[in-house]
Design a protein around this nucleic acid. Structure first.
Lengths: 248, 248
DNA sequence: ACCTAGACAGTTGTTGAACGATCCGACAAG
DNA sequence: CTTGTCGGATCGTTCAACAACTGTCTAGGT
């Protein structure tokens, strides 16, 4: 990534390290590059992902306008954003709701998840150990949380692990797809509400997976991940069937 | 997928074929079940996908409000929809533009494309020949268009073929992901504008791929598709580098 | 008692106008 | 040639109002 000074043609800037410029540009972008609608969306996103809003509940425009002090149009733009991430569903003339996933949705989510994650892992060649650092951090965080018995934190670390895993592919669009996917999956976990049962078995399996990756055993890692995800899906489906229901 | 009559609890309807009901429901939905914003989005989507709007061009709110006879807020909602499909890009305080994809985008698109399509094909077991009918139709349409020298139609048939291909996985979310992907790819094809070079080689390869699928040779089909997509990517990148530029 | 039609209240869908904020190009000053 | 300033154009957001739709409740018929 050395800076050939004529690459863009607009910066003479002799002797300036391009790294600084890129970093600064990103920083500026993160400062300002959010509209009100996006900030509102970010706020609601957290509420939904953290499980503060029960699946099936309606998000009233009128009510949220009062609470958030934004106009209806702005709020509606935020709704659109989240709708396209699968975190809200929009029913015409009825409003937006937190989705209630059914078994078919769970199967569908895991179908896509296996496709993406396993394929990403399978295609990994040998890779710089530095790139595995975030994964080591996530595994360690998961193990730590498990020792404390904080199963929600284990789940969070788990999600981060998988997000960082697909990030190894180095593809923006794969990252975005995985992000949507995992966000929807969190919805399912909250609907079930059995965090220990769902997350505990995978702290050690994450570690094992990471070891395989560190050894460059892509193919075996992909196979292990395949089983891993099948087991996870089965566990989630089983938990889903015994979940406590509101209206039986 | 038989309809257990107690599933939803609201339809007694004894002895009624569920197929009729589903078809009718879908039809009704397509009548009314679209807001103005969605109809506007649909309209713009076609414009962009068909290449009527040049990459890089700005879509003026004021101008489109006059032409389409909708309010600015509604138009902006349509913009949001398309932005999240990757068919428009939104720059804060500057408006929405038709994206100008660069080489990195093309590589990224093909990266995700290989992941999805190859993995879908690899996981296909033996399947009912009936499910391959849409694919046969697309291949035939492509061959027909190629005989006529209508390379744009060849490209369209090609896209349909791949959409139907991933549909074999039977996953709603995979379908949606692939749809976004292919829509963005059409953007790239239009930016290059060398339809024969880009599409002609693949009419026969589609046929070959389909034959492998019909024989249940999932693994070999996946391998062939892998090469296929690598070649397609290389061809597109090459064409992209010699493309005619507006402002050199 | 049961079912249907119609009126009602509550929300959402859409509009149009307004004001402030921001970007961009042009022009002047150093 | 770079830096500061200005103004036009466009976007971001808000507000108020009305139209359209949904679910519910009631009245009336059988």
């Amino acid at each position: 990534m050395a800076a050939p000074s004529g690459a863009d043609g607009d910066g003479p800037a002799p002797g300036v390290d391009a790294g600084w410029l890129r970093a600064m540009a990103d920083e500026v972008r993160s400062f300002d590059r959010s509209s009100t609608a996006e900030r509102v969306a970010e706020l609601l996103r957290h509420r939904v992902i953290e499980g503060d809003l029960a699946p099936g509940s309606r998000l009233s425009e009128e009510q949220l306008v009062d609470v958030l002090h934004v106009s209806r149009n702005t709020l509606r733009e935020a709704f659109r954003l989240l709708t396209h991430e699968g975190l809200l569903v929009h029913r015409l003339h009825r409003g937006v709701f937190v989705p209630e996933l059914d078994e078919d949705d769970l199967v569908d989510l895991y179908r896509l998840r296996r496709t993406i994650e396993c394929d990403v892992v399978r295609r990994l060649g040998v890779l710089d150990p530095v790139r595995l650092r975030p994964l080591h951090g996530d595994v360690a965080a998961g193990e730590d949380a498990a020792r404390r018995g904080d199963w929600v934190a284990v789940g969070t670390a788990n999600m981060r692990f998988h997000q960082h895993l697909v990030a190894l592919a180095g593809s923006r669009r794969i990252d975005e797809t995985a992000a949507r996917l995992l966000a929807e999956l969190r919805l399912a976990f909250h609907a079930v509400d059995a965090p220990q049962r769902l997350h505990e078995p995978y702290v050690s399996r994450n570690r094992a997976l990471l070891d395989l990756l560190a050894d460059g055993e892509s193919e075996r890692a992909a196979k292990e991940l395949e089983d891993y995800l099948h087991d996870s899906e089965a566990e989630l489906l089983a938990a889903f069937r015994d979940r406590p229901r509101r209206t039986p």
